[in-house]
Design a protein around this nucleic acid. Structure first.
Lengths: 192, 192
DNA sequence: CAGCGCCTACCTACCAATAGGTCTACGTTA
DNA sequence: TAACGTAGACCTATTGGTAGGTAGGCGCTG
């Protein structure tokens, strides 16, 4: 039973973008990785733009699901914050790659038209969700010192992405941990 | 009096990398921008790798100078922190570009050999300098709530880079301001 | 100070490799 | 038998880079 080819292509492309950027891989690379001829890729994704779009669409869905899962699994704001930190930490793959959105966001001018809109939407989703997490953490006391939910959310997202960058060059996950330490510390451990 | 060609090439290349990434520009682009034939660029920079290297070298020098200048102009940790925030804010050019180091750091695998080392060095310089700023801010009371200088430095750098990313896609500098708000607020205004 | 050699800065004209993409054809399978 | 997934052969534009040459300036020497 082989994996669905379309999914395999998306997986390979996503890994490539997250490791080397949108301009850092080609259909030839994809072809070699997935084991399908270059021309055949065009059957699934007519253009590289279409591929990027599909990539981002899928990423948006995965994010939405992840947030829902975290909400279901954790009741307090602090626990949810810890969970999203763990997610970003895992997503960095020990500093070998970045969040897809981050990778795309660095050079929006090079991106196909529709993708930019998706990125904006993605970022706003993360921001909104983080805002709700801080609001909850403020009201249930599980995150220390919250005043402005929106500013907290924006700062948290910046730190999460910045921490991924910090560990990228040296492929050293401890760089992530140090950068995120202060944010982590503000999430109270298990509900007292 | 025309600008030195070599400098003009470096300027153009730096802007290109910061706006579109290392894979996002070509010698042809450079040629059109500077007004010199493509082949002539090779006279100044034999390979694209050499260009990247020169770019990063210059950036390291500029950073060192900037830190020295800030130290000279501002006596307190809080004032120095505010100054570096302003520097990163300005460097984003209202969300049209990123810090060169950030742009390079996103896809280290695509970079020529020596450059990676320079980036690591650059980042460590920023980290060290920020560490000294927080240490000063802690001892002179000009930055609120500092405990761990190193963690503060790592977090601050992450936020600074993350804030640049935040405003990049929408080219909206207010995204930077919101993300950085909390860090800014910790730097006490003029010495009381 | 004329002439020589050399260097810098630039040029035109190429190159092989790779980029993303097209067209047509062939075997499977529903 | 029609649609799907794949492949071969090919295309055009662009990539970073090279070969070879030219014009002008500088310093040395006879």
């Amino acid at each position: 039973m082989q994996t669905d080819t379309k999914t395999a292509l998306l997986d390979s492309a996503e890994a490539a973008v997250r490791a080397r950027g949108f301009d850092g891989f080609s259909y030839a690379d994809l072809s070699a990785d997935v084991g399908i001829r270059k021309a055949s890729i065009h059957h699934h994704f007519p253009t590289k733009a279409a591929l990027a779009h599909a990539l981002m669409m899928r990423y948006c869905e995965v994010l939405a699901e992840a947030c829902t899962d975290i909400n279901a699994a954790h009741a307090t704001g602090g626990a949810r914050l810890s969970a999203i930190i763990a997610l970003y930490r895992e997503a960095s793959a020990s500093g070998q790659q970045l969040c897809l959105c981050l990778s795309f966001a660095t050079s929006p001018d090079r991106l196909p038209d529709g993708v930019k809109t998706l990125i904006v939407g993605f970022r706003q989703s993360v921001l909104d969700w983080l805002g709700s997490v801080f609001a909850l953490g403020r009201s249930d006391g599980s995150i220390i010192g919250v005043i402005d939910d929106q500013a907290e959310a924006a700062a948290a997202m910046a730190v999460l992405e910045g921490a991924q960058l910090a560990c990228r060059v040296e492929e050293d996950i401890t760089r992530f941990d140090i950068a995120i330490r202060q944010l982590s510390a503000r999430a109270r451990p298990a509900q007292g």
